[in-house]
Computed example of a mutant assay.
Amino acid sequence: MKVFRPEIRLKKLLKMPGGISVDTALDRAEEGVESLRESGVAAIDEKIGRIAQCARTGAETEEAYRLANEIFNEAGVFGLVELSQAASSLCKLLSSEEGARNGAAFRVHADTLLALRNPGICGNAANRRAVLAGLHRITERFAEEASAQSA
């Protein structure tokens, strides 16, 4: 029996001279992300504004979910960890049937996203962590109330 081993192009390319080092590639990638930071963060801020508008009206939870998911991904790229976590929490809320109907929880999440972009908070890691901890406490309370109502 003859075994067929296809040629792997990447393996061949890796053996060729030239190219750049991993460190150089990572440095270039970081420079690329930094070059997009201003416009990327501005886009995130616009999405947060739209989510806040949805939360005020209590409508368009599907759009708010989509925007929160985008913020979750984009904020992580720019190192906005707490903002990414708050957006993830909003996605979890809006993906549950009870959460999507909980206007107060929706508004708290929108307010948290807004607060995390406030200049007095976003520049201070301790303040960002405190805001996120507050969001976690409130979401736990909303979850307890929801389970008590369904019992």
Rank of each mutant, 00 (worst) to 15 (best):
F106L: 00
S150N: 11
Q53T: 14
L10Q: 04
P119T: 13
L132F: 10
R28P: 06
N118I: 06
E140K: 15
K92S: 09
M1E: 15
L26W: 07
A146Q: 05
L116G: 08
L14A: 11
S89Y: 01
G18S: 10
H109P: 04
I48V: 15
R56E: 15
A25V: 07
V77Y: 00
R117F: 09
L26G: 01
E62G: 09
E70L: 01
G123T: 00
R37D: 03
A110S: 08
H109V: 03
D111L: 14
A86T: 10
A55K: 08
V22I: 13
E62Q: 08
E7C: 01
T24S: 09
L93Y: 02
N124F: 11
E97C: 05
F4L: 14
R101K: 15
E140Q: 15
D23C: 00
I8A: 07
S89R: 10
E30S: 13
V108F: 10
R128P: 03
G18T: 04
I48A: 00
G32T: 07
R141H: 11
I44R: 01
V77H: 00
L80C: 02
K47L: 10
E7A: 09
A43R: 15
P6G: 12
R101Y: 02
L80E: 07
A104S: 09
I44N: 03
V81C: 00
A130I: 04
K2T: 12
I121K: 08
S84Q: 07
